[in-house]
Design a protein around this nucleic acid. Structure first.
Lengths: 202, 202
DNA sequence: CTCTTAAGATACTGCTAGTAGCTTAAGAGA
DNA sequence: TCTCTTAAGCTACTAGCAGTATCTTAAGAG
């Protein structure tokens, strides 16, 4: 073995090895020895770059994320847009990337710093998309002002996330997605402004 | 040390020790040696009763559960009942018992059998209470038929659970609870039956 | 050509789950 | 009261993994 990688090339190889281990065995079963072996290097080389297994895995997770920003769907109806957005969210959460993210979130309670980083990525999972979709529907007269709150905007994704919290790894069925959209999101958004009702508070 | 416990008495002592360790250091930091030491016994005695650390902790979790069934609140208004139910759910989830349950759920992906047992306990976290409350409100004319679905009935608890999935351990504030009730649950339930709207599907 | 840096190899500590085997007390039956 | 079976208690062990330390040697800059 005469060639010896250095710097960025080596770092890239390690991250790539970590990504492969993550997708194959998951976060929990990933070992530093395993990553080192797969990358053709040694553990201490990894520890020179990342302080811990968790840190390495988070870096690898970021490394496997798709890059480009995505567009907001525009199907012409609130229901269509909502279904499109929710389906996209479901696809993400049920992908290997989503699986790994959930494992990371479940395991990183120790480190509140990293915890926050990761959580933000999930928490505002495209809130802006939902607000855009709602605003467009409002301009069409489809929805009223009461729908333009973060709570209502994210209610569908929040419920989807709850499904994953309950089910574990398995993907959520399209039926559940339409149920969430038709029984919760659309009714909430298209609810006519309350006239003789006192549901408005601070 | 002349006295030597046996059978049920010893089992009780071990479970009690495990409960204490769980509440003090949590599931993740609990060690079998720690439990054995606290119970004044040895590890293999524990392993004669439970096959693994996870099994012991689940048994201990069950052992610390409150027993009696609880009543359905009846404040006279849907909003009041919902707030009462949601506050109760929040108290449970933020209690030591809730904290431990979440740790267990996060850590037991390996064992789908035990996974299911535990999950059921969370999943239908008092659905019947919510349906009762909704039925009463319906009989008062406060809500329409569209609200009497499991999805709508559990929407508040589902959103609460989502808060915990995002935040980790910290308790959810009362403000968030009222937000969920006032912006989502009550509007959904009290939504007047759609006249020229096609949001009803199977 | 030399000198600094970091990669590579290996061996180590420390911790924990789970196992093994022996010794001895508990308690039941005679 | 004696005896015999069962299981508690004790101690030592294996195996696996995170993280550390040390030493040798290749890369690459000047």
């Amino acid at each position: 073995m005469t060639t010896r990688r250095r710097g960025a090339a080596l770092e890239e190889a390690i991250l790539q090895a970590a990504v492969e281990e993550l997708t194959e065995v998951g976060y929990r079963e990933l070992t530093m020895d395993g990553v080192a072996a797969r990358a053709g290097t040694a553990k201490n080389v990894i520890y020179r770059r990342w302080p811990s297994r968790a840190a390495l895995c988070i870096a690898a997770y970021r490394h496997m994320l798709p890059s480009g920003p995505d567009s907001t769907p525009d199907t012409g109806s609130l229901r269509g847009d909502a279904l499109a957005l929710l389906t996209r969210a479901n696809d993400r959460m049920s992908s290997p990337v989503g699986r790994i993210l959930r494992q990371l979130l479940a395991d990183i309670h120790s480190d509140p710093e990293r915890m926050r980083e990761l959580r933000d990525q999930v928490a505002r999972a495209g809130v802006s998309h939902w607000l855009t979709v709602l605003a467009r529907a409002a301009s069409r007269g489809e929805v009223g002002q009461q729908a333009l709150t973060p709570r209502v905007a994210t209610v569908a994704v929040d419920l989807l996330r709850n499904e994953y919290a309950l089910n574990g790894a398995t993907a959520v069925s399209p039926e559940v997605l339409t149920e969430i959209v038709d029984q919760v999101f659309v009714p909430l958004a298209t609810r006519p402004p309350a006239s003789s009702d006192d549901t408005s508070r601070d």
